[in-house]
């Protein structure tokens, strides 16, 4: 089996500013990966490149051996860091949309999670708080049986209790062959679920290591992060 995500000399510039600079990275299947770095380090840029929402300036990125396109979109479930839902829709409209377009979407899973989080499927998104909308998006994304989940700041905007539920949802909803990439700067919260950690700073990967290897050095991911990114 080929790697689920591979970057070779991946560079993305916005005008004269380099958001990602010569990134070489291979992520194997079947693990939960933390893409960790401070704000503005290039995490979102990398994830958007993987979703073909941005075009690389140079280098290439491949998902399961394929360039981002219609075939990779079928196997990637993406949670952006912003709200992409039409305000005028109701939750069940959006569920219908996901069911229409994604073959791997399981509506019963989505309804089940909505129930557990006390979200009414008949509610309009317009009337929902920012945190509730984020939960709805995460539910949609995790109700797919994708090969790769790209979650950009999935716990940034919700309260700590919901954070635990969300992380639990992420772990319990993905199958062992799937890969989850979680981008965040809230490392202490996600540390316990991670198999692999990638540190990214100023558009460059400064570390890619299994969490076990970090622990063998007697450090926690959070501790190591504070060490590497000391201001």
């Amino acid at each position: 089996m080929n790697a689920i995500l591979e970057c070779k000399g991946l560079t993305k510039s916005f005008g004269s500013k380099k958001a990602l600079s010569d990134v070489n990275l291979t992520i194997e299947r079947g693990q939960i990966v933390g893409l960790l770095g401070p704000n503005g380090s290039g995490k979102t840029t990398l994830i958007k490149l993987a979703n073909a929402l941005l075009t690389p300036t140079s280098g290439e990125i491949r998902i399961a051996g394929m360039k981002p396109g219609i075939d990779t979109k079928k196997i990637v479930s993406y949670l952006p860091e912003r709200n992409y839902l039409n305000d005028w829709m109701r939750v069940h409209d959006i569920i219908g949309l996901f069911r229409d377009f994604y073959v791997d979407f399981k509506p019963e899973k989505a309804y089940d999670m909505l129930k557990r989080l006390n979200i009414n499927a008949g509610d309009k998104l317009k009337t929902m708080s920012k945190g509730t909308k984020e939960k709805v998006q995460l539910i949609l994304v995790m109700s797919r049986e994708a090969e790769l989940y790209l979650l950009d700041e999935p716990i940034g905007g919700v309260d700590p209790a919901a954070r635990d539920y969300i992380l639990e949802t992420i772990i319990s909803n993905y199958n062992p062959n799937a890969t989850v990439i979680i981008s965040t700067h809230l490392i202490a919260d996600v540390e316990k679920v991670l198999d692999h950690a990638i540190f990214i700073r100023d558009g460059q990967v400064v570390l890619s290591s299994s969490v076990d290897a970090i622990r063998e050095q007697g450090k926690s991911v959070d501790g190591l992060f504070r060490e590497v990114f000391r201001c």
Partner: peptide, 13 residues
């Protein structure tokens, strides 16, 4: 705009 994040990640040409 933001809605494009959904539209362009749908598996549609």
């Amino acid at each position: 705009s933001d809605e494009g994040y959904l539209m362009f990640t749908l598996p549609v040409e």
